[in-house]
Design a protein around this nucleic acid. Sequence first.
DNA 1: TTCCTATGTCAGTCTCTCTGACATGGAGGC
DNA 2: GCCTCCATGTCAGAGAGACTGACATAGGAA
Lengths: 151, 151
Amino acid sequence: MTQDEAVGDLDQSVGYVLKQVQASLHSAMDEVLRPLGLTVAQYACLELLGRHPGLSNSELARRAFVTRQSMNVVLRRLQERGLLTRPAHAAHGRALPTELTPAGQEALHEASVAVRAVERQIFAPLSPERQRRLREDLASCAAAASATHSP
Amino acid sequence: MTQDEAVGDLDQSVGYVLKQVQASLHSAMDEVLRPLGLTVAQYACLELLGRHPGLSNSELARRAFVTRQSMNVVLRRLQERGLLTRPAHAAHGRALPTELTPAGQEALHEASVAVRAVERQIFAPLSPERQRRLREDLASCAAAASATHSP
DNA sequence: TTCCTATGTCAGTCTCTCTGACATGGAGGC
DNA sequence: GCCTCCATGTCAGAGAGACTGACATAGGAA
């Protein structure tokens, strides 16, 4: 077994380069979000809620591919910041719908402006057409992953 | 300012779907790496070293888009596991070249087999041709990001 | 010789991730 | 109506990784 066989053909690994792009995106996002008092995970959570108001802790966790406990911790921090609200009791069943507060909307907007600038820089090497098809390809994978994780 | 303007057109955000795919990949990788006693960050570090033997702590940190301190912590743990070695002193200058031990090579190989299976599943929705061009697009962004972060 | 940069490491702090466990609401079956 | 099961929310604890600030040292350039 040669060295190449030992570690596989990394040049052929989509996951490898995806991880690289994501790590650079993560670190660049962290840089612009920190002055706003947000972490990347918190921003991701606000984004999900901005997109789908009223999701429960469990549903948010599923879509973010983390456990209910992890998501609960993030939600708690955002709630303490006054950026979102959760009712004390559910109208029906156990699921508590989570909503952004006006302050949360404002924070999301401000953060999105900064994050969008970072994304433009990261994906600048690609033409708008290539960016569009990149998003399509990734969306196909994300959709399948969500289906796979469904109960 | 409408709701859509407030949070921007997330459907047009490459970063958003990239984060989704990466989160699902991360959680799936965590699942297969845990039985091997590795975390995703540790595996990423082994992968880098498998690909580029002899990199220093600082160089590894740069390529992984984290600080020297963060990388040092990951390296320490892998070193304690006997998966890599670092000389006590540098032959020249301060940079200490890091190398995988035979055990590290073995661990990387075993982990790569498991990770590769996870990647095949995640990217299954795409044809081989689409996977190839996805990797190309991402590689363009990763290369530019590395150039940007250079001192 | 002095200054500057790069590197490695230390200590501390914070966030986020997990597991295991427990309690509760509601649906479905009997 | 009761029992079982599933989904949801929350608690506690532990571990990993991320950062900042700081310090010491090697080597290169001026």
